[in-house]
Design a protein around this nucleic acid. Structure first.
Lengths: 328, 328
DNA sequence: CTGAGTTCGGAAATCGTTTGCCGAGAGGTT
DNA sequence: AACCTCTCGGCAAACGATTTCCGAACTCAG
């Protein structure tokens, strides 16, 4: 593991008997160079095991060909899925996508933004941790580089936004459930997340709009543990049947698991719906859920990032996936 | 969104009436500076909204205080969990952890390593995509910076390794199953992954060792879809009962879901075990699985990365989590 | 044969920060 | 008073690449 100083362009230039300008031009293809000379440079670079220092390049050039993604938590499978699709969307472009996890903390989130800004990224994609308290992070990002918010947003910022129509998503769930049974006969409970994030907020609003302002709400976070907890509370209150509209698939999966383990039947006793459309194939019964068009959203982000347009907001339309946790 | 040129140290120095050397020393705390002068610098930096350019700093300093993590796929929840725990392990250090997804491609993986090396990271953590074909990526990384392989490894490289003892993990499963019932009476099927990665390889070897060299094996990939597919094949062959030892929790979850949807009972007809210990609370019955000590492993990585020791390999001991998919 | 146009290599400035060195001034000791 | 030791600001040289500018060589038409 003993390491010697890495070769620089000057070393390559010396070995090839040319100037560093020529080396740079050969290696980055910036300008035409005599083929024989180019060959000598390539050989020398190979012999010295030369690898470019992107710090030097980035410092000199205006652009680093890098996009940063700051997300709240990798263990939320929806965020992981977004990250993966985004990575794939950038895979065959010249741009590198780098990720940073904010660990659900606005302090760490700001640190991530600072870090990427300091690295002179060309653009920043942000899934804000908090609807209000991430304002500093978003503003900081947007003040320096092209910034796109994904899935969640901080209202009133100059940054673009790409997400799904939560109102329409909840409407799909409502219409599906209403088509199958009389909703008034079956008590509906919304198992959501406290409206700290815009998605949690919008889903709660949408539920109140479509299911009635007085719908029963249990608010926690986006986790399977909370789904279990909520189901447990519901059963503790004596419920023996009902409909659980959940704000995320992980919540729904946890809720279903708890209901089943308590001896209830799904969907006969309890109907459960999820949201996001990731990992629906993990459980039995498979989840009825609202699928977000993540590939399309990732492509939209990629296009926004390279475009020169002004900030804009785009809401994409989700689709309903009918699984086994709701009547067919 | 109109942006003006960002302020540099020279701008701050001019406004504060000092030299850039002093600005640098105040802002990075490298050397003592007269308090009054320091105050002037801080004020000037604030007024100009100065933000450091890490490219310049990194170029001048030897170190960038950055560690890169290249992983195969974010949608594999075990990798996401590792990423998250690693991020947390670095959260209160000075070091930034940046992630790059290789999208299960060795080409993209090499690109990720190149990218991080070019950015002069201080260390690289690698979950290799392929046991053999990632050799180039690992060698490239290890030839330039301190490199640690995580979870999977490429044999015969100079890089360190942190992972779990797969042999012991499978032994835990074997002993647990053997304690509850006569294994010879119940056909055991290993639902694993083709041995492209060291973890898949080692788990397959361990299964052959503990369950017998002639144990029935179905090999696919680390996904829920494969778990469903494997279960489907098994049922297609006429099985009505048995034991499924799976190479990962996602595989096990998929298998359980398919078995249940086909009308079989778990664990009465089929016993199923997983591996990894992430997301066991998502399903019902909850998975019996081998839990990897991810927090401890993440801490070990962090320590390896900052230490000056030579390359080393550490295997951690997994624990058994008994869930509802196997007899109590 | 000459002047215009084109191609292409090299010298040197530049990106933003850190840091080795120098020197000025302060403080202490004999 | 002479000398030594600290402390701390500034100058200028790095770090490693890109790029502007210049000029040499070559092509080609008239």
């Amino acid at each position: 593991m003993s390491r010697t100083r890495a070769a620089t362009m000057a070393d390559v230039a010396r070995l090839a008997g040319v100037s560093t300008a020529t080396v740079s031009r050969v290696l980055s293809g910036t300008r035409a160079v005599d083929p024989a000379m180019a060959q000598r440079v390539t050989d020398a670079a190979g012999r010295l095991d030369y690898r470019i220092n992107l710090l030097g390049r980035g410092l000199r050039r205006t652009s680093t060909s890098t996009v940063g993604l700051v997300l709240p938590d990798l263990r939320n499978p929806f965020f992981s899925a977004l990250g993966q699709h985004l990575a794939r969307a950038f895979a065959d472009s010249e741009v590198d996508l780098l990720l940073f996890s904010a660990d659900d903390s606005i302090t760490t989130e700001v640190r991530g933004v600072r870090s990427f800004l300091g690295r002179q990224v060309d653009a920043l994609v942000l899934i804000p941790v908090h609807e209000e308290r991430s304002a500093e992070a978003v503003a900081l990002a947007a003040s320096s580089v092209r910034t796109v918010q994904l899935d969640r947003r901080v209202p009133g910022t100059a940054a673009s936004y790409v997400g799904v129509s939560n109102r329409d998503g909840v409407a799909l769930v409502h219409d599906h459930l209403a088509a199958a049974a009389d909703l008034d006969a079956q008590p509906v409970t919304y198992v959501g997340a406290v409206p700290d994030s815009s998605s949690a907020h919008e889903r709660l609003d949408a539920v109140r709009r479509w299911f009635g302002a007085d719908v029963d709400c249990l608010l926690g976070d986006f986790s399977a543990a909370w789904g279990r907890e909520a189901a447990s509370r519901l059963l503790g209150d004596g419920a023996a049947a009902g409909t659980l509209v959940c704000a995320a698939d992980v919540i729904a999966a946890g809720a279903v698991a708890h209901l089943l383990s308590a001896g209830h039947r799904v969907p006969d006793d309890f109907r459960v719906t999820g949201f996001d459309g990731v990992g629906a194939e993990l459980t039995h019964p498979s989840l009825t859920t609202v699928r977000q068009p993540v590939e399309v959203m990732a492509a939209a982000i990629r296009d926004l990032v390279v475009s020169e347009e002004d900030a804009s907001a785009r809401w994409f339309e989700p689709t309903l996936v009918v699984g086994g946790t709701s009547p067919a």
